[in-house]
Amino acid sequence: MVDTGVAGIKLFRATQSVPCAPAVYEPCVIAIASGAKEAVLDGARYIYDQSRYMCCPISMPVMAGTPSASEGNPLFGVFIALNPRIMSTLAIEMENAGAAIPSSDRRTISSEQGIRLARWDNAFSDSLLRILKLGGNDVDRIVLEEARLRELYYAILKGEAGQFARTAFGAGNAIARSIAHVSANLGEGISIDEMAGRAGLSRAVFHRKFKQATTMSPIQFVKSMRLNKAAMQIAEGMTVSEAAMDVGYLSPSQFSREFKRLYGQSPRQWGDALQS
């Protein structure tokens, strides 16, 4: 990852194949300029390249990799973090300006889960190029950064994944708010009743709506988020015990059992394999 100087915008490259491994996608768009990238969510594979970008408007535990990257076929891409404040403001402004999502479409969108691929269009390409150009001039970046971010986010919200993203960031999306709270507090005790209460829903309704949005039950989601984050931290050099504690596991043996059940290796074996 290489910082561009613009908040939330990074460039990345890969010159070797990387098998899909545990990851946590925070709200983001990933655009590929050359090569292809892959994400797997609950068994569904999403492969995206220079013809389609990936939109993930809520935090999701996934498997991600670059299976086709090589020296002769390098991967180049742009990571775009989605600022919830700006995205929510734009979604509400679009709604107030008369661009409301019809209730029939809203029901269809609510059944889509976690990730959506969208075709590059001219508005997205132009606004992405304009914001990347800011990295070369500090004055331009300071003066224009937020305006260019709004332009890029607006292009996303108007694009093929736009209604999907607007549903996540629009007013009243209780599931998205609940997921944002979970993502920010993985090290704390998280109960399903607390999540449902934060969303303002009964436990039964919350469970049903949550599974519609993420493919997982709330308990499965929290566990996957914790284990994926711990796997990433171990890959970055954190000890197994530190990673377990950081994501809220009080029992190292429970952490090891659940880690091995999900990934087929103990946390120590996982770490050792990455270092070999």
Results as ranks from 00 to 15, higher is better:
3 D>P: 07
4 T>C: 03
5 G>K: 04
6 V>Y: 06
7 A>Y: 06
7 A>I: 03
7 A>P: 00
8 G>T: 03
8 G>P: 06
8 G>F: 04
9 I>E: 01
10 K>V: 03
11 L>P: 07
11 L>F: 09
11 L>N: 09
11 L>W: 04
12 F>R: 08
13 R>Y: 11
13 R>G: 12
13 R>F: 07
14 A>E: 13
15 T>K: 09
15 T>Y: 10
16 Q>K: 15
16 Q>D: 08
17 S>T: 01
17 S>Q: 01
17 S>K: 09
17 S>Y: 08
18 V>T: 14
18 V>Y: 11
19 P>A: 14
19 P>R: 14
19 P>F: 05
19 P>I: 07
20 C>R: 02
20 C>Q: 09
20 C>H: 03
20 C>S: 15
20 C>W: 01
21 A>I: 01
21 A>Y: 02
22 P>A: 12
22 P>C: 08
23 A>T: 08
24 V>Q: 01
24 V>P: 06
25 Y>I: 07
26 E>M: 10
26 E>I: 05
26 E>S: 13
27 P>M: 12
27 P>A: 15
29 V>N: 13
29 V>F: 08
30 I>Y: 07
31 A>R: 00
31 A>E: 03
32 I>V: 15
33 A>F: 04
33 A>G: 07
33 A>N: 12
33 A>V: 00
35 G>F: 05
35 G>V: 06
35 G>W: 01
36 A>S: 13
36 A>Q: 12
36 A>K: 10
38 E>R: 15
39 A>P: 04
39 A>Q: 07
39 A>D: 06
40 V>Y: 12
40 V>F: 05
40 V>T: 03
40 V>C: 09
41 L>W: 05
41 L>Y: 10
42 D>Y: 14
43 G>D: 01
43 G>T: 03
43 G>R: 08
44 A>L: 04
44 A>K: 08
46 Y>R: 09
46 Y>V: 00
46 Y>H: 13
47 I>M: 05
47 I>K: 12
48 Y>N: 06
48 Y>M: 02
49 D>K: 01
49 D>S: 11
